[in-house]
Design a protein around this nucleic acid. Sequence first.
DNA 1: GCTATCTTTGACAGCAATGTCAAACATGAC
DNA 2: GTCATGTTTGACATTGCTGTCAAAGATAGC
Lengths: 192, 192
Amino acid sequence: MAGVRQFDEREALSRALDVFTDRGFRATSMLDLATGTGVQRGSLYHAYGGKEEIFLRAFGEYTAGFLAGASAALDRPTKRAALLSFFDYCIQTFTAGTPAHGCLSTRTAIEAATESPRAESAVRALLDELETLVYAKLSTLDDGVESPVNLHGAARLVVSTTRGLAVMERVRYEPDALREIAETLVTSLFGR
Amino acid sequence: MAGVRQFDEREALSRALDVFTDRGFRATSMLDLATGTGVQRGSLYHAYGGKEEIFLRAFGEYTAGFLAGASAALDRPTKRAALLSFFDYCIQTFTAGTPAHGCLSTRTAIEAATESPRAESAVRALLDELETLVYAKLSTLDDGVESPVNLHGAARLVVSTTRGLAVMERVRYEPDALREIAETLVTSLFGR
DNA sequence: GCTATCTTTGACAGCAATGTCAAACATGAC
DNA sequence: GTCATGTTTGACATTGCTGTCAAAGATAGC
């Protein structure tokens, strides 16, 4: 195998993810990716085909990292603590950076839904896994707290709420206000 | 006053709103607006200045209509019924059209947040008014149902959830699944 | 009917991005 | 060291959109 890739693929995809994270799928151009990764535009086309492909790979990294973080955050002794910690993690994730870059998966759901079915599926898959993760935690923890709703429904509502928070963040809701919304949900689901 | 506008402004803005509704702020070009409204691109620039201005006016119409609809939907005898009807209205609003066009304000929050502070403010204003509307309803209705959380918090959570649903809709959640999520929230807030 | 005033129209120059390609380049295998 | 193979590079043609403008067109007021 002669004629070998000159750039570090892991490094490049990680940089690409940074670019997507702060510009969003739609707004990032191949030139932005070239600049961000330090790899020429032509090389990117040659290696991956185009923006969508690069995005999907970078988004794979994102998904893995995000799910790992979420899982760690959920590791608390009570349902309430687990969910609060989980929401905290989400909020931290998308209020990072100056200015805050927002939630990549939410942005993608909205921006890419129409123009990239594959991106849409990737987001959908992420949300499904997230729901599974939350449900697993809720159903495992037996802290004696009852909820007025079943746990499958609760898990889905929790995931859906993370999307709501991501949107609210975009219109200048402060992290504390977001946390308060999350706490309201957790309290209404599992009490104080 | 000679030299008079040749097109019906109300009609044009309403058509423009349709265009924005199904393509989103970012993706619609001045040419799309010209085609959609039947008014030449040059005339649109002359009359309004540019896309942002047209959007803001069209979005004004949208806001008024949406708030009126929401208010009507909330007019029910119990908190539970009012909220379920409200969510139903929202879900109907953004699953209309084939393919469904999604929620314009949510899309705008995400797409326009970075590139149009004025659009961002307009969305923020809409969400604030919506919250006020919901809160007013909840605090007025005295159906003897208690909630584990205060009504201000509940109202904000309800609004935030409409955003969550709008995002979920974009990744192929069916209307019924969305309604189920909404019902879960309502039940957890005010019981069955 | 004339005129002043505003509107419409089509054309233009400019910009940013896309996707492709031939030539130059690097390197593993022999 | 040579070669075959895949990679990098800069250039190119194309596309779609933007914002502006001069000339032509419409109309209210006189």
